[in-house]
Design a protein around this nucleic acid. Structure first.
Length: 415
RNA sequence: GGGGGUAUGCUAGAGCGGUCAAAUAGGGCAGACUGUAAAUCUGUUGGCUAUGCCUACGGUGGUUCGAAUCCAUCUGCCCCCA
């Protein structure tokens, strides 16, 4: 394998790095321990978290030892970086729960068995801190003049948004994390998004001041899709790694809908395909680039949900869009009782009830604008009433717009 | 603690006491085009038992025939002084 650092660079993972040559050398000559933090602000990670995860996985594949930090302690404060407002505080129990589910997701990508990798909650050492001691031992190494130069803080100060003292301490705690990890585990590299650069540097400095040793930091570019949308966001909200929040099929669809311009970048980030293959795929055009997208979607889904789910999602997708008919099993389905059809169900009510629209008014609009289909036939009149005549094999196939399907199965009424 | 400013829909951001469900932009949704992409064009974007009704412009309470618009007070945020 070629030099790991070069690989990371080639795949686009490197935005800034404290001492590029040394890190590069370190990675190829030694086996090191490295870490990245994940905030348990939700009970699932989303597609945006995949960049650090994939980077960590690359390092682990090369024999290095990852530490995934769950920010149980720091989340109780809230990272002000990039936030325009104070982050809502989350209860300790919630953080605990979130951490547990996030760990499960990380384990799909990383081996965290305590030998080849660790999973730690920084609440372990942060919560028991003594304020005075902390100020004396750690606080004395920080200069406020330096701290307020950090982009996130500076913005908050300039934009007159206010910054509570609580949040201001975030940087110290993250730096302290790094120090602890260095002392306990000889962790010498911290990875993070580019918005974390200031916090990472603070940690690097702190270790140097207290231990007199040099440790390193590396940041990833902050991803946005070519259209400008935030990575991992869709109309329906975030693309979660949790199968219950975003089904493997939806996850697959997210990737297959990738903008042409993003295909190559995304393949490099979110799959382990070799780079010459990635480049070849990214260079494809027209019909062929769709194959590249399918591959991206398949690989990404396989990593997140396993081969079986990826196969299923791929089949469903092909069936739905390849013209070969729809995969009814994978479709969201609602069951209604048969006698409701005797009186008939107004079309607006039906679309709303199955969740294809969030309100009746929206259903009304959808229908009027020609986005409502039943059994692939468009209905534009809002006063249509659905009755048993429209049933096909005891079911209705609803469609809103081009891509959102919902199946309604009718339950025979028991006389 | 004192003085001043500000608070609008998913976001940004207009808004004269009536004609405000609230300009404009972005975003979203739908239609046309298409490659499950992009770009472009068109329509739409609080809810409802729907040519009308209800709920909304930080909270509460006033003034008024009538308030997002005026007053008081509370809350959050910002600025200045201490």
């Amino acid at each position: 394998m070629s030099n790991l650092f070069e690989t990371l660079q080639e795949r686009g993972f490197v935005q800034q790095c404290t001492h590029a040559e040394q890190v590069s050398h370190l990675l190829s000559a030694n086996q090191i321990t490295y870490y990245a933090g994940f905030d348990p602000t939700a009970d699932s990670l989303h597609a945006g978290s995949l960049v650090p995860i994939m980077a960590m996985a690359h390092l682990q594949r090369d024999g290095h030892k990852p530490i995934a930090i769950i920010g149980g302690g720091t989340t109780m404060i809230g990272d002000p970086t990039d936030k325009t407002e104070m982050r809502a505080m989350i209860s300790a129990e919630q953080i605990e729960k979130n951490g547990a589910s996030i760990l499960k997701q990380l384990q799909r990508y990383l081996d965290l068995d305590d030998t080849t990798g660790f999973f730690l909650n920084n609440a372990e050492w942060l919560l028991s801190l003594n304020y005075i001691e902390f100020l004396r031992d750690i606080g004395k190494h920080f200069r406020v003049n330096e701290m307020i130069k950090v982009e996130g803080y500076r913005q908050r100060l300039e934009r007159e948004m206010g910054l509570s003292f609580l949040e201001f301490n975030y940087q110290l705690l993250q730096a302290y994390d790094y120090l602890c990890l260095f002392q306990k585990y000889n962790c010498v590299l911290q990875l993070g998004g580019d918005d974390q650069w200031g916090n990472i540097l603070a940690g690097v400095d702190l270790v140097r001041r207290i231990e007199g040793k040099r440790v390193y930091g590396l940041t990833f570019p902050l991803l946005t899709a070519a259209g400008g949308a935030k990575m991992g966001k869709t109309a329906g909200g975030a693309v979660w790694l949790d199968a219950n929040k975003t089904s493997p099929y939806q996850f697959y669809q997210y990737w297959i809908n990738t903008d042409d311009r993003d295909v190559e970048r995304f393949l490099a980030y979110f799959t382990f395909l070799p780079m010459d293959e990635v480049k070849r795929l990214g260079g494809l055009e027209h019909d062929e680039i769709r194959e590249a997208k399918a591959l991206l979607a398949y690989q990404a889904t396989k990593l997140a949900h396993g081969k079986a789910e990826a196969d299923k999602a791929q089949e469903t997708s092909r069936a739905a869009f390849g013209g070969g008919g729809l995969d009814l099993d994978a479709m969201p389905t609602t069951t209604i009782s048969g006698d409701r059809l005797d009186t008939g169900i107004p079309i607006m009510e039906l679309f709303h009830e199955v969740g294809l629209t969030t309100s009746r008014s929206e259903a009304r609009r959808l229908i009027q604008q020609g986005g409502a289909y039943i059994n692939e036939k468009q209905y534009k009149a809002i006063d249509i009433v659905i009755d048993a005549n429209l049933l096909e094999e005891n079911a209705l196939l609803l469609r809103a717009g081009k891509k959102r399907y919902h199946r309604v199965v009718v339950e025979e009424s028991i006389e």
